[in-house]
Design a protein around this nucleic acid. Sequence first.
DNA 1: CAGGGGCGGGG
DNA 2: GTGTACGCCCCTG
Length: 829
Amino acid sequence: MELQFYPYDFDYKVEGEKTFILLFSKLENEKKVCIKNEYKPYFYASLEGVDQRLFEAKLKSLTIQTGAKPAKVTSWEEIEKELLGQKKLFYKISVNYPKAVPVISREVQEWGVECYEKDILFTHRYLRDKGITPMVLTKATGKYLEEEMMRVPVFLAEEIIQESKQTKEDWKILAIDIETYAPKRGEINPKKNPILMIAFYGLDDQGKEFRKVITWKIFKHNLDYLEIVKDEFEMLERFKEIIWAYDPDIITGYFSDGFDFPYIHERAEKNNVKLDLGLDHSELFAGSGVSFQDGESKIKGILHLDVFKFIRNIFGKDLKIESYSLDAVSEELLGHRKHQIDLNNLAQVWDKEPDKLEEFCKYNLQDASLTFKLCDKLIPDMVEFTSLIALPTFDLIRMKFSRLVQNYIMKRAIGHDVLAPNKPGRTEIERRMEESIQGAFVYEPTPGLYEDIVVFDFRSLYPTIITAHNIGPESFRCSCCKDEPHVPDRENYWFCKKERRFIPSVLEELIIKRVELKNKIKELKKHQNDEKDERNIRILEARSYALKILANSFYGYLGFYGARWYCLECAASTTAYARNYIKKTIEKAEKSGFQVIYADTDSCFLLLGEKCLDEAMSFMDEINKDLPGRMELEFEGLFPRGLFVALKGSEKGAKKKYALISKEGKIKITGFESVRRNWSALAKEVQRTVLRLVLQDKVEEAVKQVKEVVKDLKKGNVSLEKLILKTQITRELSQYSSIGPHVKVANDLVKKGFEVLPGTVVEYIIVKGSGLVRERARMPSEVSEGEYDCDYYIKNQLIPAVSSILAVLGYSEEDLFDESSQTGLGNFF
DNA sequence: CAGGGGCGGGG
DNA sequence: GTGTACGCCCCTG
């Protein structure tokens, strides 16, 4: 019979001499099924310099005793593959079970025969070879099995195929979150401290909210979702039952790989609870233990997505957030922050005032619901990465860019009959880590306030250079193009001009796909009318984002020391070409009569001067005429004013530090450290105001404002709140050898009976008086209005925030901060 | 300025 | 899991 389904979680199982891949899947009627499909493990070996008769005889009789099952070679064949541009014959050697691959290949290597693709996960191997993409509609022919011990029906597939590209986006998600007993601030110790409550959040089959919190302390409350049980043991049993009853496809948490699941696992062991949550009755696997950094937690047949991992590794790079905390991420992606409570009180409340526990239950549920919403929102992106790279979502969201790129290349390698080069060993990695290359070109700006700035940039500069110049390890120093032009600035480097090679062709495919996709999105947006279109657009945008990230990571991948297709010459050539293109662009702009004021990597800023925008645009067209491949210079914008400041204590212009204002009045700030934590609110506020006024050509007004603030400061009129400085305590107080103001205040807090552990952010204000700064640092509650040291705030907060900006316009610090508050060092001590 | 050590996320 | 471990920032010598 034939079956249609969406596979979402993968595993394999050895039965006797056969190995089966298990594809946990959803049928179109939303029921689950486990598809079983046989596949044989194998690896490759080099034929070079091998006495084939002797080698084959040795393979035939090879048996290695290891653990329970002897490892053996079952068959081999000769096959042509391309390795780093060279077409050669290899042995494809099949073995009797997956773990025999490392065992046998190690032995073969001992014989002096190089082996390849011996460290590829078996499920990955299967998906790639069969061309199966997770979360995409799949067909199989075969029959249901009777005898299997699984929570879901098992279907033995003879044949399995994907004809459609249809992805499934509506998965049944359950979010979980735990709160634990932490008597000391910040203490996390699963060996000692119990879990106090567990929250669940999801949507049931009717689309109705599913909310639940379980705890094991009796107290009065008004929560309809709260369930109180006898003890931690009962709570863990209920945890299991609730998951079984809800029957999620996806279980999600925030840092659940490294916290929730390892913690639950440890407590279950302690309480003798068997967490046999897997669809094959296997137990929760919490790989790490809590102290462990990159552990993974797994339940067979349920896809565990740790949203935090996906955001940290992949999605968060474009977000402008200071930390990947659930609070910061929710604010950025969902638009609302957590309702904060002081978790430090939980242990105390639990022990002494259980009537106040309701707040903590709400908080617990809120974390689960935010995690659910984040997961729900990001599912299209995770699904798109999955369908692009065609590996299990579980693995993909836990990868960093370099591995995403590598796995994409390996997917493409199948169709090109390309063999993956081996991963570097320890010594090779060490050698690679010593090497470095020259990076991008940055034009040193002359400090000043400029008008009518036109900004151009090269669209996807590095990817288009790599494809336009056929840059890759296979085409590097080919024998046929020695006499063709070499890489600028790199006289010994050249790439094949005659034949398109593997790496750049893979990248080019990505770029083309993205261009097509962008057109499609544009088209759809024009005619968009219903909700379905909107969802469709969201999916296509997620796909476009995945393509963009992947394409942009190729350059970094080529220079990444852990890469299989490592090629530092390729990375160096990419930046060399980039420097050349941007410098040529600058030259040509100047020749055309434009003044260039700044350039960085792929962008070029020039002044319109007496010319009109059309002339600038025809300059751009000129440039584009000469660019090879898909390279293109684009118009980024015309900015009425822009500000470039000087390096501290120097005439030189600071690189990567400027501010622009658009015609619409939108301000774009780059590189100004206006969000440094150890700046007061006052400094941040004044800096923003001054930048805005200067860019609006209201310099006088800006100066006036600064003087106003100085006056207010001196009069003692500035509210204390704006003057609070914050610094984190990073270690035991006794361990500090140099006592900064924050350490001194931390000590004061201890004297008052507060506990200050590493991680605490100490707030303080500097007050008037004599002596060292630290002796004048006070906790805000101990400072009365106007008691602050205005000289300190002028010198250490206001001046650093605005002087470089106003210096550009000819104002010295004395002009701004006038004679009565001398700010020279001589006067300070 | 190099190299070691600690931390991130979570309570 | 066809195992073995990241990368940045801060501080110290």
